[in-house]
Write a protein that binds this DNA or RNA. Structure first.
Lengths: 160, 160
DNA sequence: CCGTATCCTCCACGATACTG
DNA sequence: CAGTATCGTGGAGGATACGG
C-alpha cells in the first residue's frame, strides 16, 4: 500500500494490520510458529531474497513480535524467536489455516499448526548444527489422526 | 510482492493468502462483514482510490469471496455481498480483531465484529437511499456492555 | 451516484555482490 | 553461515478524467 499509516484509527483490525499486514510477515510468522528460528531456515522455506528477509525480520523485531537472540558466542549467531505477542498471534494463523484448508485444499496434508490433542503449537525443529541435517521438522509432519498418507514431496515450483 | 504465485504449495496458509493476502482485501472484508455492500460505502470507509477499490472488489469477486449483485434495475445499481466463502472468512477476522484489541488497543471502543451474545455478525448498515443518511452503522457502534463512551470522532490523518 | 480507463509515480522487492 | 549494501525494475496504487 502506498503505506499511509492507519494510526489514528481506533479499529483493532487496522492496528493489527500495521504489524502483520502483508504476505511475508504472515508467512514468516507461520514458520516461526512451526519452530523455525534461524535466518537460513526462513530463507530456504520461503524463497525470499535475503535482503527482504532481513527487512521483514527486523520489522517484526521492531513490532515486538520476534526477539533477536544470540545463541552462539563464537562465531556470533542469532536466532529469531517469538515473543509472547508473537505467540499470541497464533490463533489468527490457526483460523487462517483452517479457512484455507476448508476451502482451497481438499487433500488432507500440509503443515501442522497445532497439535490436535494439546492444542499447543508444534515443537521447534531440531537440526544438527554440524551437519545441518534436519532431524525433526514439524512442518512436514502430519496429523496423527486417521491414516495420513506418506510424506509430502514438497517442491516449490520455481517461478521464472 | 513481486507476486510469485504460491500455487503448487500445499500449505493452506499460503493458499489462503493467495486470495486475501493484502491490506486492502482484509479491510474490505472487514467492512463487508460489518454489512457494507455498496461501492461508495467502501470508498468512504477506507480512503481508497476508486480505481484501486474497483480492482480489489473485482479480485474478491473473482476469488469467490464477494458476489456482485444488481439491486436496482433503473438506474442499474450493484452491490457486493459476501458469498458463503466470504462469510466463512469471518472467524479469521474475529481472531485478528481480537489480537489487535488485546495488544494494541487499550481503549474499549471500536468496531463490533460479532454480537457478543449470539456470536453472529452485526446487521447490515441501514442508510436512507434518498438522503444517503446513515441510520445505523455498526462500525461505530459500541459493545452494549459496560458504559462505553461517546461516539468516536473518526478522522484519518491524511498522508501528504 | 457508481463506477471504469488512462496515465504516471515511487517504492517494494529481487539480483548481485560483498563481509565477518 | 548469516547477513548488509547497492542498484534496477515492475507493478501497486493514486490522480485525473470520463461515462451511464
Amino acid at each position: 500500500v502506498r503505506r499511509k499509516s492507519l494510526k489514528g484509527t481506533d479499529c483493532a483490525v487496522a492496528l493489527a494490520l500495521e504489524h502483520v499486514g502483508d504476505w511475508w510477515n504472515i508467512l514468516i510468522l507461520r514458520d516461526a510458529l512451526q519452530g523455525y528460528s534461524r535466518f537460513d531456515d526462513f530463507h530456504q522455506s520461503l524463497e525470499i531474497s535475503p535482503t527482504m528477509l532481513t527487512r521483514k525480520l527486523n520489522a517484526l523485531v521492531d513490532s515486538g513480535l520476534l526477539e533477536k537472540r544470540q545463541y552462539l558466542a563464537r562465531p556470533p549467531r542469532f536466532e529469531y524467536v517469538l515473543t509472547p505477542l508473537g505467540k499470541d498471534f497464533g490463533p489468527v494463523l490457526v483460523a487462517l489455516f483452517a479457512w484455507g484448508k476448508r476451502n482451497f485444499q481438499s487433500i488432507d496434508r500440509g503443515i501442522v499448526l497445532v497439535d490436535s490433542e494439546t492444542n499447543e503449537f508444534a515443537e521447534p525443529i531440531v537440526s544438527d548444527r554440524k551437519s545441518g541435517e534436519i532431524i525433526r521438522s514439524p512442518r512436514f509432519s502430519f496429523k496423527a489422526a486417521k491414516g495420513s498418507s506418506a510424506a509430502t514431496k514438497r517442491r516449490l515450483s520455481r517461478s521464472r
